[in-house]
């Protein structure tokens, strides 16, 4: 049986991968990234894009390496991380308990529903001027903005998660004699966990966005502020290097949270693979 078997979409089935001339799947993203980087280098070096405005890839990475090794990068990263962590922490500290409360009590939810629905779509950046007036231009403003923006995803997700608990599960608990508190942390919270973690993931991204925004616009210490300073000082290679660093930070945080989500939800349906 040497004929190649193909599925309906014309792509060889994975089981077929006997190695040989078929590239493993992790190769392809690397090839794409390599192509893009070379393209960047080429365009910038040969003047297709003015190298004053976009320095070549090699220069940017070199600058990034230089900043990393010289130690000037890390305090900036630390500042941004601090703003992000405090913002996310406060958001979770307020959002999760409130979400649990609102999810458990329809009356409480209905009382504040209008307020949430109005505050939630508000772009938190609209509060920047007000925040500056009240908190100044330092870390406090950054944390306030990050926390305010990050509050809503985690609160709403927790709320939905707790409210959406399978009523049959709750009643099973009741039939077995569990009281209100026990039903909460033994049934409702675990079943709401996927929602809560999705909320945390979104909130983490939002917190980072607002932290960097605050640094950019207000001038709180951190990567955002350094990027803007580089731009104003026309130090474009430093600016791009810092943007790259910010991107890498965002990417790593995102992956970290996703890993954690997988770990904590290993029992959940969404993580199950179809049994072979």
């Amino acid at each position: 049986m040497s004929a190649e078997v193909r599925s309906t979409l014309g792509v060889p089935l994975n089981e077929l991968n006997s190695g040989g001339f078929q590239l493993p799947s992790w190769c392809w993203p690397l090839i794409t990234v390599a192509v893009v980087l070379c393209f960047w280098e080429f365009c910038s070096r040969f003047g297709i894009i003015s190298s004053r405005f976009i320095p070549p890839m090699s220069v940017t990475f070199a600058k990034l390496g230089e900043e990393a090794l010289s130690g000037s990068l890390w305090p900036l990263v630390g500042d941004t991380l601090r703003g992000w962590a405090l913002g996310l922490g406060i958001a979770m500290g307020i959002g999760i308990p409130t979400g649990v409360l609102l999810g458990s009590s329809p009356l409480a939810y209905r009382s504040v529903r209008v307020i949430i629905e109005f505050l939630r779509p508000m772009p938190s950046v609209a509060l920047i001027p007000l925040t500056v007036l009240v908190f100044g231009i330092g870390l406090k403003s950054e944390v306030f903005l990050a926390a305010f923006a990050a509050l809503w995803p985690v609160l709403v997700q927790t709320l939905y998660g707790v409210a959406d608990t399978d009523p049959v599960a709750v009643d099973t608990g009741r039939a077995f004699g569990l009281n209100g508190w026990e039903r909460l942390y033994k049934i409702k919270l675990p079943s709401a966990l996927p929602y809560i973690l999705t909320g945390v993931r979104i909130s983490s991204a939002v917190s980072l966005i607002l932290a960097v925004t605050a640094e950019l616009i207000i001038g709180s210490p951190g990567l955002g502020q350094a990027i803007e300073a580089a731009r104003q000082g026309s130090a474009y290679d430093a600016m791009y290097a810092l943007i790259l660093a910010t991107g890498i930070l965002g990417y790593l945080l995102n992956i970290g949270i996703m890993r954690m989500q997988c770990r904590l939800l290993h029992w959940h349906q969404s993580q199950r693979r179809i049994a072979p």
Partner: peptide, 12 residues
Amino acid sequence: LRSIPPPAFLPA
């Protein structure tokens, strides 16, 4: 690209 915080793009 998606995980780069959007405000970082502005200066560029």
